[in-house]
């Protein structure tokens, strides 16, 4: 699965995107974030405050309980500050 990062989440993780093979028990957005945090210190730091992390599955906003299903691309980012 392709994972993309934006803004300070991207800066803290240290890459713009990565493609990962996920364990079978990673089925929801929340599972995915928990899994990413185990990868290394950068991921753990970037995603430490799960409450503020926003998620899009295939470019649609979703809540943490959402199943990943057939998602091709997950994006993780801070609360948006456009406008």
């Amino acid at each position: 699965m392709k994972i993309r990062y934006f803004a300070w989440v991207r800066e803290k993780v240290g890459v713009e995107e990565e493609t990962l093979e996920l364990p079978a028990d990673v089925t929801t957005v929340k599972d995915l974030i928990a899994h990413l945090k185990t990868l290394d210190d950068n991921h753990a730091l970037a995603l430490a405050d799960e409450e503020v992390i926003r998620v899009a599955l295939d470019q649609m906003h979703v809540e943490p309980h959402e199943p990943l299903g057939n998602t091709q691309e997950v994006a993780l980012f801070p609360p948006m500050t456009g406008g």
């Binding site: 803004a7 300070w8 980012f77 500050t81 456009g82």
Partner: peptide
């Protein structure tokens, strides 16, 4: 405008006159 602020995927980073790159604007 209300929903552009909260749902459109944009993030603002400040560049300061003194001290180079500043911080990300907080929501």
């Amino acid at each position: 405008m209300d929903f552009l602020k909260t749902r459109a995927p944009f993030w603002k980073k400040e560049h300061l006159k003194e001290g180079g790159t500043g911080s990300w604007v907080e929501a």
